[in-house]
Amino acid sequence: MDAADKKRLLREMLYARRFEERCYEAYVERKIGGFLHLYPGQEACAIGVLEAARPGRDYVITGYRDHVHAIKCGADPREVMAELFGKETGSSKGRGGSMHIFDVKHRFMGGYALVGGPFPLAAGIAKALKLKGEEEIAICFLGDAANNQGTFHEALNMASLWQLPVLYVCENNLYGIGTRIDRSTAVVEQYKRVCGYDIPAAQVDGQDIEKVYAAAREAVAHVRSGKGPYFLELLTYRYRGHSMSDSNAYRAKEEERQWSKRDPIIMLRDRLIEAGQLSAEEYREMDTGILEEIEQEVIPFAERSPEPKVEELERYVLADNDPWVHGGAR
């Protein structure tokens, strides 16, 4: 990574932060409904890992905290915001919402709301890639708490048994909704849990995007070379509650203070400034540019887009005009 790459990643992380903060405001303004799970604090995870892969070509799947993963894959942020606003122009035509962003043309295979649900889906995508002899891989991002679901164990067993090209990324933010990891999980260090499936694993600092990128390059190379699955644990922290309906009362203020010093954006910014590769002025301009883009392009697009038509309520339940429903006779 050269200085230009690092500046681009800094901008991507800052964009993700500002996008999510704007979602927060829109939620308070009741422009966004339902459940909303925001990503601030964890930006280096999705952006750092996917930087080491081929976003838009490799297949990516995740849980409900999915906006930033979709955008890094190539989803248009205007369409993601329109989805949150429930509009027809949204990523999922307003049928999905925050937890179900899909952008299949950029191979973002969706956000899913059942904790742990994507583990076997990712293995299945990898099975299809292997069967077709394609060189793309599947990448599955989930949180630490998902590893307490049966699907984690079932999918990792099969991925290893059949040597499937899938990278499992565990964004360990220390909390499963409101329960701290040591109160829910016997083995706190998640990378240790996968040795039971003979899958190579690593644990790195998820706040330092350069470390995430370096570890992800190794992980992606392993998976792409046909050696089977890999498990990458990233130690991270979310700066907001689990969702907007979370009071966040279960975390110690001191713990939050400590993690706020390890903000992935500030860490990279300061490193670039120290190295003389970025000025404070440039950073401010970057930030202003992002805020303007969100206010002038993203929000107005979502605001002005049409609602889905009620006449189309029953569309997308089943395939349109599938001839095999009638025994192929059509």
């Binding site: 293995a123 299945g124 999918a155 067993n157």
Partner: peptide
């Protein structure tokens, strides 16, 4: 023709994931 482990939710999910890519 795949002999699966006794993991019904897991292998059903795996089949669904594969079907996303046309399998």
């Amino acid at each position: 023709v795949i002999d699966t482990p006794i993991s019904e939710n897991g292998f059903t999910g795996l089949g669904i994931g594969a079907s996303f890519l046309g399998v």
